[in-house]
Design a protein around this nucleic acid. Structure first.
Lengths: 209, 209
DNA sequence: GCTTATATGTACGAGGCGTTCATTTACTTC
DNA sequence: GAAGTAAATGAACGCCTCGTACATATAAGC
């Protein structure tokens, strides 16, 4: 009986613990907190208490609340929005936009993402991380699909596909974040059709292209 | 020498003060703080110290940080974005969108507004107030102008003008809030032209309307 | 085994939150 | 002008969060 580890299997004590075990405990706690309480109740102090991981360790690996939240979010939310390729760009856009809206409005992760974007307005580190880990890839996929449609002769080749992304997804974000109008299915359809066929009256002086 | 007011002209003491004087002191302080430090450094405690108004009074009139910030913002920022009516909807949209982008990117108020929208994601009172005091009127003006264009035969009458608003302003907000692509003048022009003339290749199967 | 990296408990000062309370003063009414 | 009411004040409170510091205990790597 020289010295035994003072830690039982469950109870915690002092001393190093396996890194992945610690990390898993933290991310699970952060994910739970985000989905149940939301961003505003996420604090280092609470995460430390609920996860059993010490504040010292938290601050070591996650320098800011944003970093912590983002990590927890991606751990909690299954992100599988791969773009369909039916051959018809209109069909695929509708399908993808509907899936996106579903994710944002019908799953708890949607609110969290909105809160993350919100926090990013006052947390530059979070803004950068969000862009790198989330926006960039999403945008890349959309642009890729739109470019394919151009190559297949379905879209005008002169059109900047980046702008198209903003006019579809950005419009949805607008309603989600400002919340002054509801995001209905009719809205989604109108988004796509307005953009595909244009809104200027045929033969009008406005229609210059 | 019965009793004199213990307050000199500048120095503060206990007791009631003129309501507008108090209100002015607060709004000036909040506006300054927002424009110089930003939303994250705006606290009741600091506003009380800097304005000379007691915390008790602040909490009485402004129930939340969001209410305080919004009030201060509208006091500090001159909001004059009346829609032009040149007779050409394309010209007027470009003009108005450019003015909006200028406001958001070239004036200090732009960042503050983004931060307010951000805060609104975790502060429902602020969300409601922002919608009532800001978004609604902006959207109303845009819809009004677009409806006029419909009546003048420049836009298809079947188009939902609300959706158009999201596809123009929403697209800009998207880039401003996510910051993954810059908001250039070419972007603004592309926004308008994509939407007016459509992006589907003429004669393509996609173009169903 | 020895060394190093890491997690732990504990404590700290600073600061914000949101509220209470008695006191002082401006406004209103008669 | 006097009395009564509404409002602003200072001060203090308990609670929470932040971010950091320190000494100690343990897992990994060599």
């Amino acid at each position: 009986m020289t010295k035994e580890p003072k830690r039982t299997t469950t109870g915690r004590g002092r001393g190093r613990r396996p890194a992945d075990e610690v990390r898993a405990d933290v991310l699970r706690t952060v994910g739970d907190l985000l989905l149940t309480e939301g961003m505003s109740d996420l604090t280092f102090e609470r995460v430390a208490r609920l996860s059993g991981v010490s504040k010292t360790t938290l601050y070591k690996w996650w320098p800011s609340k944003g970093a912590l939240a983002l990590d927890g979010y991606f751990h909690a939310v299954e992100e599988t929005l791969t773009f369909p390729e039916s051959g018809d760009i209109r069909v695929d856009l509708l399908s993808q936009l509907r899936a996106f809206v579903h994710l944002m409005t019908e799953t708890p992760g949607g609110k969290v993402l909105a809160e993350l974007i919100g926090q990013a307005q006052t947390d530059n580190d979070l803004s950068v991380a969000l862009r790198e880990l989330y926006s960039k890839e999403r945008r890349r996929q959309a642009v890729e699909r739109l470019t394919l449609a151009q190559e297949q002769g379905q879209l005008e080749t002169t059109v900047d596909t980046q702008v198209v992304v903003d006019q579809l997804w950005g419009a949805i974000y607008h309603r989600l974040l400002l919340r002054d109008e509801p995001v209905t299915d009719a809205f989604i359809v109108a988004l796509v059709d307005n953009l595909l066929t244009g809104i200027a009256r045929s033969g009008s002086a406005v229609d210059k292209r």
